[in-house]
Design a protein around this nucleic acid. Structure first.
Length: 118
DNA sequence: CCGCTGACTGTGG
DNA sequence: CCCACAGCCAGCG
């Protein structure tokens, strides 16, 4: 039987996003745009936000390791989610700048391929 | 099928 | 450097 190799485009967007975010190592931060690209939809950065927003509270997906391209935590501050994200990141050793942005120069993760090189 | 929303991003003033 | 505007796109009613 012919089994085509599982290409990203065959996987539902949300599933692909979850897989990518799960691959982000502790103490590392990536952007919505980068996740979208790795998920096979380079222009769907906003979709990534929607996907993470749909995650159940008990998810094992490390959603807090995703910030915007500037390292800002753009998650709604409602319900203290913003503060929660910051707490979780700091717990992993992620440093923040004076203006409240994540220190991307020190903690940005660009993907598994990049990881091999660094 | 159509229209609207938003945890984004790039560009221009 | 800060702000406004305009594309983009998945998900949902």
């Amino acid at each position: 039987m012919t089994q085509d190799p599982p290409t990203p485009s065959d996987i539902p967007f949300r599933t692909a996003v979850e897989a990518v975010v799960r691959a982000v190592p502790p103490g590392r931060v990536t952007s919505y745009g980068a996740v979208a690209a790795l998920a096979g939809a380079p222009r769907a950065a906003r979709g990534v936000g929607a996907a993470l927003n749909a995650l159940p509270a008990d998810t094992d997906v490390p959603w807090w390791r995703v910030a915007n391209r500037d390292g800002q935590l753009t998650i709604p501050s409602t319900l203290g989610l913003r503060a929660l994200q910051r707490t979780l990141l700091q717990r992993e050793g992620v440093a923040f700048l004076e203006d409240g942005r994540v220190d991307l120069a020190e903690h940005e993760w660009e993907g598994p391929e990049w990881e091999e090189n660094e």
